[in-house]
Design a binder for these strands. Sequence first.
DNA 1: TCAAACAGGACCAGGTTGGTCCTGTTTCGG
DNA 2: CCGAAACAGGACCAACCTGGTCCTGTTTGA
Lengths: 156, 156
Amino acid sequence: MIRLTKQADYGIVLMTYLARIPNRHFAAPELATETRLPLPTVSKILKLLAREGLLESHRGAKGGYSLVRPPDRISVADMISVLDGPIAFTECIEDAPGVCSQESICQLRGNWQLINQAVRLALEGISLSELNHPLDIPLVQLGVPGDQADPRSLDH
Amino acid sequence: MIRLTKQADYGIVLMTYLARIPNRHFAAPELATETRLPLPTVSKILKLLAREGLLESHRGAKGGYSLVRPPDRISVADMISVLDGPIAFTECIEDAPGVCSQESICQLRGNWQLINQAVRLALEGISLSELNHPLDIPLVQLGVPGDQADPRSLDH
DNA sequence: TCAAACAGGACCAGGTTGGTCCTGTTTCGG
DNA sequence: CCGAAACAGGACCAACCTGGTCCTGTTTGA
């Protein structure tokens, strides 16, 4: 189905919310009520984001979470990597030989890399701050190759 | 985990194999032995690809499958759409209101579209024939935004 | 006429995800 | 100095989806 997991989905929603006021910190219960997501889930995701270094946590009463760097320096790729693991459509990852049973006969290694890389680059091109101001993103940054009409992209 | 399903994975492998000799047609058993994938699975996937219009099937003895159009006019996006459903990282798809329970409060609709679109464009930019000749693909087509160094893409 | 190959389902086991809960530990405020 | 609010880090389980097989037609070349 090629979906993000809900964990990543919710995580990006939460990050986007935090990015509105980058320097404030927000407690998990507050974010849960604001986003109307269940608290245990929100809490779990925030903990993960903190552990992985995208959020800073402040313990104790009046604690909470805040962004660890400015939102324009956090990419969608960063968040998805943390929440859903490395961005790779297939198991053919360069530094993991032996994962793919077809390895010896598969002629496609380099090609999968290409696909993976294309997706990764596309996602690295969108920053958290741009998610809050979607209109600012130039199309070229989204991976639109020039203005050459592409005969391949049919309807879906 | 953001993986393609194995169905899509295998499907692309099979399509790539077919694309080597675009006009020939290949029987499922032949493809199964060539790719060393189990026949029932290969058969299932080929049937799907045929039903969805990416392959042409020839029934009867000496039957088989062949590409329905030249490999440079079949994009990776085409194949993934058929094998794994529409390319959308999240359920926020434009013509499906009501799917997302957060709809009324979610400020992100437009933004998810952006992410989905970026991925879709990246995958539309790679054709089946390029998968067989990976070196031919210019980087810009992969979505690399000019040569502006991107400070967001840190290590992973 | 037979065998090879496609068509279209039904079917099931296993793994992953989504979500909850529980037991610490830290820290602010009164 | 104490208690409540919040974070930390797991364990845990149900539900769903995927991966894969198999079976019964139908078509067609030799």
